[in-house]
Design a protein around this nucleic acid. Structure first.
Length: 678
RNA sequence: GGCGAGGUAGCUCAGUUGGUUAGAGCGUCGGAUUCAUAACCCGGAGGUCACGGGUUCAACUCCCGUCCUCGCUACCA
């Protein structure tokens, strides 16, 4: 199957240009894709490795708004930071473009136009919030209001950041425009949707023809396809002034939905790189298309994007989507908003010249099959006891011995012993072994197999003891050093995809060129007479102070951001409004879980004059057995409502902090049920 | 609640279609060694493979149930 591949199109998820990239992004997609690309290049494969910043969407607009800057300034700033940091850590894109470029705008518009002309898009008029002061429609992100779920006052129109619920802006209570602060009005607006239901069969066939995909990827796709209500039509346009204009006459003020244009960014970057020949990389079936992404992007790359391509027609769909899970940091989820992250550009400043250490550690600990944890202690251990002690040490030993005994000149071997031949055989087999792992996207396994070459070297030296042998049998010592040098040379080649900087340093010391991967199998790397330089240490120890400093930095930046947020004040009301509320003291007499709902409790509350059934979303905050006997304050004249089929005749007053923790408001124990609260 | 992915030595992970004493790296303990960044090399200890059933001559591996973690999704007046 892999025999007739003529070229590879390798993509890495487009980083969103509203912030820098962190180690989670690196471990999740940039490092694996880079290792893969470097490996293929070393195999002399024809390939392109494309990426670029994703620069549209409401979040960019929002960020600009909050900084009083233009979107352009934001994306320029982060494009530069992202591009430079990825470049410095050695991610070898053939092109790192950006979606704000002319060529991308045209490509995305043409794509949209094709779908439109084919009649693939459905026009729908919907009601959307409009800011009359600002004179424009408001994207969900631009509307803030009270979350209907947790009543957090600063929920966004698409999601409440407090309780995490996905919302639609029309659900918000007291919505406010973030542009002008005024109350938005609902107005009709037209959008273009891509129906997906008729494609579900084709998409399912497509996914099912890739059962070899990683379980997390395949599983999530099938789960989506099998979901009860099928594939919903997706709106491909938005009312926004930052983005790619919809290329239709009656679409003023409308732009393409960022999720529509972003993946097309892969295509336009290819065009930018290859010109007319771009079609080879996107339409031919002898092209292997590999998308490297994080798990948050699975559905998009495996279902929505392929659906777009299918509908458009003529495209070759992704062959592999090796999505990684998430990387946690010191036991906690990486969070941009809480500043719980190790930012790549900061690492590069704090650890100059140690790009490969980060590459090594993140590859060794990459969340290939499940979420994984990055800790600074682990970083230190892997550096000190793997990179320094095993790899760096072996390389150094060989170089030192070579200088000491032969002034760096590779000696002439005499008869090779069985162990010598076994060692040489092992390094001959290394490329195939490591390559096999890489082709299966098992990067951590590949890395460990590479390290085994260094382990082999250390063992070989320990067993052969050239420093002893040389005293009585110089000829034998020469053979040993010859073999050790070959191992070292192979290492310099095999390291290359993973640790390109150190690999080059080592190769330079050895006076070697970068060789083809398969050429490394049968090869006398260093012929007798060649000169090996002294070198110096490939890696240096990372001391405790450095690690502690990083931990402190992390904690410090985190707490700085963890201030409590206060819910927005509501508008003034009149005394009469207040009088409408009927609040009473009650006692919970029964509590049970509502079936098929994680958060709901069905409570019975004794109000003195009667007992009421009340449903409350507090299940995750209390133990059932603690509730009976609890005095509570109850809104008793709220219109009854059914929740998950259970009647709720009132609402219990709760206090909630900014983290979403709930407690009952204090109600005096000695007040009888039914007492009025005012 | 539904769906998906996980739960294997102190830590991070492998375990192919079920088959003899469950593996690796790191850590730890002991030994050996000195060419080497107190590094390397050898050896030991350490696991009722989340838990409970079942199928089988045989299960970490298959089936059912339960618990826990992560993700998507529903519910939160």
């Amino acid at each position: 199957m892999s025999t007739d591949i003529s070229r590879y199109t390798i993509t890495a998820a487009l980083p969103y240009a509203n912030g820098p990239v962190h180690i989670g992004h690196l471990a999740g997609c940039y490092l694996p894709s880079d290792i893969y690309a470097r490996y293929l290049r070393k195999n002399d494969k024809e390939l392109i490795f494309v990426c670029g910043t994703d620069e549209h969407g409401a979040a960019i607009n929002m960020k600009a708004q909050s900084e009083g800057a233009q979107p352009r300034e934001i994306v320029d700033r982060y494009h530069d930071i992202i591009r430079n940091s990825l470049d410095q850590v050695g991610i070898s894109f053939d092109i790192f473009s950006r979606t704000s470029k002319e060529i991308h705008h045209k490509t995305a518009q043409d794509f949209f136009k094709t779908l439109y002309d084919k009649g693939s898009l459905e026009e729908k008029v919907t009601q959307q919030y409009y800011d009359e002061e600002a004179g424009q429609f408001l994207a969900d992100r631009f509307i803030m209001g009270e979350c209907p779920n947790c009543h957090f006052g600063e929920a966004y129109g698409d999601q409440c950041e407090n309780c995490g619920t996905s919302l639609s802006s029309t659900e918000l209570i007291n919505p406010k425009s973030r542009l002008s602060g005024s109350a938005p009005v609902l107005k009709e607006t037209k959008h273009w949707f891509l129906p997906l239901d008729h494609l579900s069969g084709k998409i399912k066939d497509y996914i099912q023809s890739h059962k070899n995909w990683k379980p997390n990827v395949y599983g999530q796709c099938m789960s989506w396809l099998d979901a009860g209500d099928g594939l919903q039509a997706r709106s491909m346009t938005r009312d926004l002034d930052w983005g790619i204009p919809v290329p239709l006459d009656d679409a003023e003020g409308k732009v393409l939905y960022v999720w529509f244009d972003a993946p097309i960014g892969y295509i336009s970057a290819t065009k930018e790189l290859k010109g007319e020949a771009w079609t080879d990389w996107w339409t031919k079936d002898d092209t292997k298309m590999v998308h490297f992404i994080g798990k948050d992007n699975i559905v998009f790359h495996c279902i929505i994007f392929p659906a777009m391509l299918m509908e458009h027609g003529g495209f070759h769909l992704a062959d592999e989507v090796p999505a990684n899970e998430f990387l946690n940091l010191e036991g906690k989820k990486i969070s941009t908003s809480r500043n719980w992250a190790v930012w790549l550009h900061e690492y590069l400043e704090d650890f100059p010249g140690q790009e490969d250490v980060l590459r090594y550690v993140l590859t060794a600990t990459a969340p290939e099959s499940k979420d994984n944890d990055f800790t600074w202690n682990d970083f230190q251990t892997r550096n000190n006891s793997e990179l320094v002690a095993i790899l760096g040490n072996f390389v150094n030993r060989v170089q030192v011995l070579m200088q000491k005994y032969y002034e760096g000149e590779v000696p002439q071997p005499s008869t090779l012993s069985d162990t010598d031949q076994a060692a040489l055989k092992e390094i001959e087999e290394a490329p195939a072994l490591i390559g096999e792992s890489l082709e299966k996207y098992r990067f951590r396994e590949a890395l460990s197999r590479m390290m085994n070459v260094a382990r082999l070297g250390n063992k070989y030296l320990a067993d052969q003891e050239p420093w002893k042998v040389i005293k009585n049998d110089p000829e034998r010592a020469a053979t040993i050093l010859y073999v050790a040098t070959q191992i070292c040379a192979q290492l310099s080649q095999m390291m290359e995809p993973f640790m390109p900087f150190s690999a080059e340093k080592l190769r330079t010391n050895l006076g070697l060129e970068s060789l083809g991967w398969n050429d490394c199998a049968k090869q006398e790397f260093l012929a007798p007479g060649m000169i090996v330089k002294a070198g110096g240490h490939l890696f240096t120890k990372v001391e405790d102070e450095v690690i502690n400093a990083q931990k402190e930095k992390l904690e410090a930046s985190n707490t700085a951001e963890a201030e409590p947020s206060y819910e927005a004040l509501k508008g003034e009301i009149q005394f009469e409004d207040f009088l409408k509320l009927d609040l009473r003291v009650g006692t919970i007499t029964k509590a049970e879980k509502v079936k098929k709902a994680d958060k709901l409790l069905h409570l019975e509350v004794d109000l003195g004059f009667e007992k009421r059934s009340i449903v409350s979303g507090i299940a995750q905050h209390f133990d059932l057995e603690d509730l009976p006997g609890q005095k509570v304050s109850v809104v008793v004249n709220l219109a009854p409502r059914k929740l998950r089929g259970v009647l709720s005749q009132g609402m219990i007053l709760m206090a909630e902090d900014s983290e979403g923790n709930l407690k009952f408001t204090a109600t005096p124990e000695d007040m009888p049920n039914g007492s009025v609260i005012r």
